[in-house]
Amino acid sequence: MAESLGQFEQIVLTAVLALDANAYGVTIHAKVEELSRPRKVTRGAVYATLDRMEDKGLIASWLSEPTKERGGRSRRHYRLEKPGQQALRESARTAQRLFDVIAQNLGLKGRA
């Protein structure tokens, strides 16, 4: 059975998925802010969630070459692992079911 995800974990995993090869701290934070609008998100919360999901084996990370714009420091890149993909699919199915029920009862337009 896939790991069950909290809402913030779903958002962070979706950001990693969407950014693909360009997923690292700054871009993930920007994408998470975009996905969770209008809520503001601190970068620290994103780091903590990434660490937790890495420990659960949902994502993997590695360091890039150091760059000048970062003061000669490396970026930590992330990618989704198989358990992460599975957990995200499971969450999407649950969200779809919720959306269908809400749309039916409150008359929302469009599909999730």
């Binding site: 701290g25 780091y47 360091l63 760059t67 714009e69």
Partner: peptide
């Protein structure tokens, strides 16, 4: 252990 990445991200932004 998080210094390089976090400081790099702070520097980049």
């Amino acid at each position: 252990l998080a210094r390089e990445v976090v400081a790099g991200d702070l520097c980049e932004t």
